[in-house]
Each structure stands twice: as C-alpha cells, then as structure tokens.
Amino acid sequence: MRQLIELNVNGEVYPIDVEGRTRLLDALRDKCLLTGAKEGCSTGDCGACTVLLDSMPVTSCLVLAASAVGKQITTIEGVAKGEALHPVQRAFMDLGGLQCGICTPGMIMTSIALLEENPNATRDEIRYGLQGNLCRCTGYDKIVDAVQAAAHEMDGRRRGTPRVETGGNPAMAGPLQADTTGGRSPGAR
C-alpha cells in the first residue's frame, strides 16, 4: 500500500511516497537520493547501511521507512557541519581507516554513536562497539586507531587541551582481547 510520509533526514524534511514494506535504506537511497548508506547484505550482518535514528545506530536495511517517521535520521551526508569534518571523519582519513570505502559510512556512523555514549572508550571498547560493522580491506587495526584518535580529539576539545597525536599500535590488554566469540562463535554451526 502506497503512502506519503515525511522523513526528517539530516535536519531536512523529505516528503516521499513509499510502500508499507519499503525499507529505510531504500527510502534514503532511492527516494531521498542520499546514497551514502550502502547495501552490503540486506540481512543486518555487514553494517554498511548503518544510520542514526535519534542518535541510535541502526542497520537501515532492517528498518521500515514508515517506522522512521517522526524521528531524527542522520546519515553520513549529515555528519560534517558545512566544510568542517567531524573528528571521526578526519581521523579515518588521516590514519588510514578506510580503503575501498564501502564500509566507511556505516563504520563512521557507528563510531560516532559509540563515542557519544562512551567518550573515553578504550581500544577494547571500540572493538566491542564496532563488531557489527564488517570491513574486508583494513583488518580493522587502522579503524580502531582512527576511532581512538577521534576520541582523544573530541575529549581534548571538551577540555580545551591540544589534540593528542597518535599513530602507534599499542598492545591490547584486558578481557576483550581478541575475543573470538563476540556472541557469535566462529564456525560453531
């Protein structure tokens, strides 16, 4: 059943017509022509379509467009304020946190939500928070580097202290180190 809805995306209102079954991802990409969110699997496994729904990261392939009415939707296109990049975007660029770039929009959206919730996230907490976003190019190290550097940068801005320079690969410690379960036991099926 076709219906007219209004989506609030990145602070702008998009009046669009959708089917009841239309996914938020398709509404964003095909109706709003905001193609930053990517489709990698359509089953919520890869995280490339992650957007923020009232600050919560969601895989937009599993959300119905109609259910997003009345909520603030933020996509990768709405992250930079004019010319000013978000510190997470800047850090991904500077520290090699992307290669092919297809996972990058989703990875950045999840990272922003993660740092909003936990501004002082440790390396382990960053790894834990990004487990739903798959990247096949980087091996993840430089993504974790980037989110950690962004956390320092954002923390510095809040405190008014200079940006912390990073670049190394500090060894991991703690209980989450290389936890292969993550609730999803590899090959256990």
């Binding site: 699997c41 496994d45 790894r127 487990q131 989450l176 290389a178 292969t180 993550g182 999803r184 590899p186």
Partner: peptide
C-alpha cells in the same frame, strides 16, 4: 549468507604489529 559464512569482525583479531 554472512551469518553462516563468517568473516572476521573487530573482535576476532588482536592488533597487528607491522
């Protein structure tokens, strides 16, 4: 599918020293 064909997540690997 990606649920049953498992590729690594951030939790499957430690940091790499290069």
């Amino acid at each position: 599918g990606l649920l049953d064909y498992r590729v690594p997540t951030t939790l499957d690997f430690p940091d790499i020293e290069s």
